[in-house]
Write a protein that binds this DNA or RNA. Structure first.
Lengths: 115, 115
DNA sequence: TCCAGATATCGACTATCATCTATGTCTTGA
DNA sequence: TCAAGACATAGATGATAGTCGATATCTGGA
């Protein structure tokens, strides 16, 4: 389980000065977690869902993929620290960690955006 | 060869409304190109190099990797539209397309940053 | 015309990843 | 206590990606 806010915040903007190997090794997994069409759509669906959260049951229906596959992608995003997970009864709700997205964006473009 | 500025600009910010599958399919390759430690360091090295550009000879020395491997990563970044390529004599110079980075960052965080 | 150096391409190998089916775990309600 | 439903995990498989050594291509100078 990563801390994307810390990871991206650790590092200077990409264009400011050369990233060390350790810094690059810290950031690459975050981008890797985002760099998949299904996971991009999952992030987008969760973020724009009513209340800023969505349960897995809502998400499964949006894809032509098996339930375990969606579960896998959600785990990847959660392990990367990009989604928060909240189990309420039988249902599991996911919520986007916007601070994480802001940190990543700031690292990429140098924009001092704080989520 | 992609057009990352157009690709990322085509799409609403991740958190604004659900991405279509087509939009996600367009953006994922850009993030995938960035989502590698070596390529992150390459982008960073090129961007922060004197004059905003660097030749391959400068870059090869910064890594403990073979010359073909670096060449491969540069090709991935160039094909994704993240690096511009300029051959001058025997040397090839690469330059970061900062507008591309800005578009990606804006798409991730919703920041209306224009590079 | 030829050689040396800079960079790209090719082919192979290994590791990682996305996906599936089958199954396990947990919670609610009867 | 049991059954049903929501979600996660396990194991397998085909595709993709990072790396290398060998080789090709291009350019400038002798």
């Amino acid at each position: 389980m990563l801390d994307p806010v810390g990871a991206a915040a650790c590092c200077p903007p990409l264009t400011a000065r050369p990233l060390s190997q350790a810094q690059a090794d810290q950031i690459a997994p975050l981008l890797k977690a985002l760099a998949d069409p299904v996971r991009l759509r999952l992030m987008s669906l969760v973020a724009s869902h009513r209340g800023g959260e969505a349960c897995v049951c809502d998400l499964n229906d949006a894809f032509d993929l098996s339930q375990p596959t969606i579960s896998h992608h959600l785990k990847v995003l959660h392990d990367a620290g990009l989604l928060d997970r909240d189990k309420r009864g039988v249902w599991v709700y996911y919520r986007v960690r916007s601070a994480a997205l802001a940190s990543i964006a700031a690292m990429i473009a140098g924009t001092p955006a704080i989520g």
